[in-house]
Simulated assay, not measured.
Amino acid sequence: MTDTSFLDTLLSRQSVKFVQAPGPDDAQLDCILQAAMCAPDHGAVHPWRLALVRGANVPALVDVAVRVAEAEGKPLLERKVENARRWLARVPLVILLGCRPDPQGRIRVEESRLSVAAAVMNMLNAAHALGYHGFWSTGLGTYLDGLGAALGFDALDEHFMGYLSIGTPIDAIEPKQRPDYRTLLREWSAG
Rank of each mutant, 00 (worst) to 15 (best):
A35W: 09
A36Q: 07
A36W: 06
M37Q: 11
A39V: 01
P40T: 09
V45G: 14
V45N: 06
H46R: 13
W48Q: 14
R49D: 07
R49K: 14
L50P: 10
A51M: 13
L52Q: 08
A56G: 12
V62S: 10
D63C: 10
V64I: 08
A65N: 09
R67A: 14
V68I: 09
A69E: 00
E70R: 06
G73H: 04
K74S: 02
P75E: 00
P75M: 01
L76S: 13
L77E: 05
L77K: 09
R79Y: 15
V81C: 09
E82G: 11
E82L: 15
A84C: 03
A84G: 02
R85G: 08
L96G: 05
R100G: 02
P101Y: 01
P101W: 01
P101G: 13
P103N: 00
R108Y: 03
A118F: 08
A118T: 04
A119P: 06
A127D: 12
A127F: 13
A129D: 12
H133R: 04
F135A: 01
T138R: 08
G139R: 03
L140T: 02
L140F: 06
T142S: 11
Y143D: 06
L144N: 03
L144M: 09
D145G: 11
G148R: 01
D157P: 15
